[in-house]
């Protein structure tokens, strides 16, 4: 493996139709939870990036019987047709590919500038977040705007992205009482990450804003906006701008292309 700071992965079967490669660095004889909790943010991000590279590599290789490849932050799962590609064969295949350098697998990465309104009813948890982080609401907003975030992994619903790189001063656990309904396009923060809800759904993140632009729209040619590796930057807008942009989107005057920035690299 090119990056020797990563823990050695172990294989764990998930039934006979899936097998996962686990990078949390534990073995069954150790206390699994402690090992996982002991990973630093840097280690987790290095693992997540490696997993995305390996997933892209295997997706390109596309061996018969490999049905789905599901990256998570610390584990990579392969879904197989056991009659065509048994787990024992997949393990050998992945292990051989793992020996090769994966750095040349270019991940297509886009840079998004997402408009967010942090005002009024769009930000029901803003004041509480400010109190708990011991700062003003304006400071919460400016810290949320300050960093360019990275999509570390997608899931668990169409278009939902876990965005890492949030200012550490905004790190809070999830809400003790999850809401039964969070409106689609709400922008939330928790556990040092940020999310944009793709659908109306239950949710336990602290809601500090909302974007007028759907990250998931089944009527669009590309229903899902983000992919792993994309960079996301937020742009502050007023409530009036929110409503204008919402109407412009519905009328087809604003599209995904308007939210993309050329990568400077």
């Amino acid at each position: 493996m090119s990056d020797n700071t990563l823990p050695n992965p172990i294989w764990l079967p998930m039934g006979d139709q899936a097998i996962m490669l686990d990078y949390t660095g534990f073995s069954p004889v150790h206390q699994a939870a402690q090992k996982e909790a002991g990973l630093t943010i840097e280690q987790r991000e290095a693992i997540a990036a490696h997993i995305q590279r390996l997933a892209a590599h295997m997706r390109r290789l596309a061996p018969a019987g490999l049905i789905d490849i599901v990256p998570a932050l610390t584990r990579l799962t392969f879904v197989v047709d056991p009659l065509i590609l048994p787990q024992s064969s997949l393990k050998i295949l992945v292990t051989l590919e793992h020996e090769k350098p994966l750095a040349d697998v270019a991940l297509t990465s886009r840079h998004w500038v997402i408009p967010v309104c942090y005002d009024g009813a769009f930000a029901p948890d803003l004041n509480e977040v400010a109190d708990r982080c011991e700062m003003t609401s304006e400071e919460v907003i400016s810290r949320h705007l300050a960093n360019h975030l990275t999509v570390s992994v997608m899931g668990f619903m169409p278009g939902s992205a876990y965005l890492v790189g949030v200012d550490e001063a905004l790190t809070l656990p999830r809400r003790a009482n999850p809401r039964t309904k969070v409106p689609a396009q709400s922008v939330g923060i928790a556990i040092g990450q940020s999310v944009i809800y793709p659908l109306d759904s239950p949710g336990g993140w602290h809601l500090i804003g909302r974007t007028p632009f759907p990250v998931f729209d089944p009527h669009r040619a590309e229903p899902i906006l983000f992919d792993a590796g994309d960079v996301v930057e937020f742009r502050r807008i007023t409530e009036a701008e929110y409503h204008d942009l919402e109407q412009a989107y519905e009328a087809g005057h604003v599209t995904e292309a308007d939210l993309q920035r050329e990568m400077s690299s």
Binding site: M14, G15, Q17, A18, M20, T24, Q31, A32, A33, Q34, E36, R44, V70, P71, A72, L73, T74, R75, T77, V79, G155, F156
Partner: peptide
């Protein structure tokens, strides 16, 4: 469980 019930989220599968 031996410890906490929660893990860093990972892939789901029908039948898990």
């Amino acid at each position: 469980h031996k410890g906490p019930a929660d893990i860093i989220s990972d892939a789901m599968m029908r039948g898990v």
